[in-house]
């Protein structure tokens, strides 16, 4: 199966002008399953003051542009994250905090925590650390803003174009019908 890459899907033309407004007003929905939820209140309130960049927390996925995954995801919460992501309206972006969504982190051998989030939904930016400090989070946001301005943050387009691949990955963990351990390692 051919996977569309970032270069092919880059925003051009009129979108470039709108991208200026999009990067200046990122409204985020934070999915607080993991320990990263603790780092967000200081980032939002007066100490680090995220509102300087026009960012703010939103209550529902319909209103939000940015989905923050703050830490590890178990299988059950992965299902909810996919629902939430699909409810958000285009253009939308995903930031994964901490090392757990990258390679499993300290939960690398857990039977219920997923190892790599980017297999199931497109992640535009991962911020490493266990957990990243508010400074690192803000630096990540600024990096995402630059990507949006250059038209490179096109995770939502990737999801549309490569939907079959993502759906196959999602089903392989969420809808399996046979015991896992009889099979081979990936």
């Amino acid at each position: 199966m051919e996977l569309y890459s970032t270069k092919k899907l880059k925003d051009e033309g009129f979108e470039q002008i709108l991208n200026f407004f999009r990067k200046k007003s990122l409204w985020m929905l934070h999915y607080c399953t993991g320990c990263g939820a603790v780092e967000l209140p200081p980032t939002m309130t007066s100490r680090w003051d995220m509102e300087r960049f026009g960012m703010g927390p939103m209550a529902t996925p319909r209103q939000a542009d940015l989905l923050l995954i703050t830490g590890y995801l178990s299988l059950k919460s992965l299902k909810r994250v996919i629902y939430t992501y699909e409810q958000m309206q285009n253009p939308k972006w995903v930031i994964a905090l901490g090392s757990c969504p990258i390679n499993g982190g300290i939960y690398y051998d857990s039977y219920s925590v997923i190892n790599r989030l980017a297999l199931y939904i497109p992640v535009d930016l991962s911020i490493e650390g266990c957990m990243p400090r508010p400074e690192a989070i803000i630096e990540g946001f600024i990096k995402l803003m630059k990507q949006i301005e250059n038209g490179e943050a096109v995770g939502y387009k990737k999801y549309q174009e490569n939907y079959k691949w993502y759906k196959q990955n999602q089903d392989s963990v969420l809808k399996r019908e046979f015991p896992v351990l009889s099979g081979e390692e990936k």
Partner: peptide
């Protein structure tokens, strides 16, 4: 558990 995790979620 490790083998299970590697089988279903994939190694990094």
């Amino acid at each position: 558990s490790l083998k299970y995790s590697n089988t279903i979620f994939g190694k990094f």
